Computed example of a mutant assay.
Amino acid sequence: MKNKAFGFYTAALTLILTVATLVAVLIYGSKGGMVNSLVPIALGAAAVCEVSLLFGEKVWTDFTGIIAATLLAYAMMTVLSDGIWNIAEAFNGIKMVGMPELSGMNITMAVLNLVAIVTAIITNFAQKSK
């Protein structure tokens, strides 16, 4: 652990946040929320990319870090666009086409995913090993 740099820890944090987002998406889908089938795949692939960053500075880790951040951004925008009616109906107090009772899950997924994106971007610019 002595040869680990800041980027290693941000990669580990991104991995934890990505897995937490994946769990939240699966729970959301099991409660009847609309989940695009590519979102869990994208989050799983982002987690695999983040795991590869934990092995230190390699030639391919620059690319896997960028791929992870891109997959996380895709997952966030898809989840937000699919759940926008839930959030809008919860704020307006009406029920039309969404499920306003799931708006808390939508916001939780968006916040987890946003923090994961930020830490993934920071990881891309940080050194992973000393």
Rank of each mutant, 00 (worst) to 15 (best):
95 K>H: 14
81 S>C: 07
93 G>H: 06
30 S>E: 15
126 A>N: 03
124 N>M: 07
103 S>R: 14
38 L>M: 10
55 F>N: 07
2 K>Y: 12
94 I>N: 09
15 L>I: 01
88 A>N: 07
29 G>W: 09
26 L>I: 15
83 G>V: 01
64 T>F: 01
58 K>R: 10
30 S>L: 11
61 T>N: 02
48 V>D: 02
102 L>A: 08
4 K>W: 13
111 V>H: 05
69 A>Y: 00
119 T>K: 01
113 N>I: 05
75 A>L: 00
8 F>P: 03
9 Y>C: 05
84 I>D: 09
43 L>M: 06
36 N>R: 14
22 L>G: 11
8 F>G: 03
18 T>M: 01
116 A>W: 01
62 D>G: 13
130 K>L: 13
27 I>N: 14
50 E>H: 09
119 T>C: 06
64 T>V: 14
83 G>S: 13
70 T>N: 04
25 V>K: 06
70 T>S: 02
123 T>Q: 09
110 A>D: 00
108 T>G: 05
26 L>H: 12
111 V>N: 00
78 T>S: 07
36 N>P: 05
49 C>G: 04
59 V>N: 13
121 I>Q: 01
65 G>L: 03
63 F>K: 10
45 A>N: 09
77 M>W: 11
42 A>K: 03
123 T>N: 10
77 M>G: 05
126 A>K: 02
26 L>G: 08
95 K>A: 12
87 I>M: 06
88 A>R: 07
56 G>N: 04
56 G>H: 03
85 W>G: 11
81 S>R: 12
92 N>W: 06
97 V>F: 12
21 T>D: 10
60 W>D: 07
115 V>P: 04
78 T>M: 08
24 A>G: 09
42 A>E: 04
4 K>E: 14
14 T>L: 04
24 A>M: 13
59 V>Y: 11
114 L>M: 12
57 E>N: 10
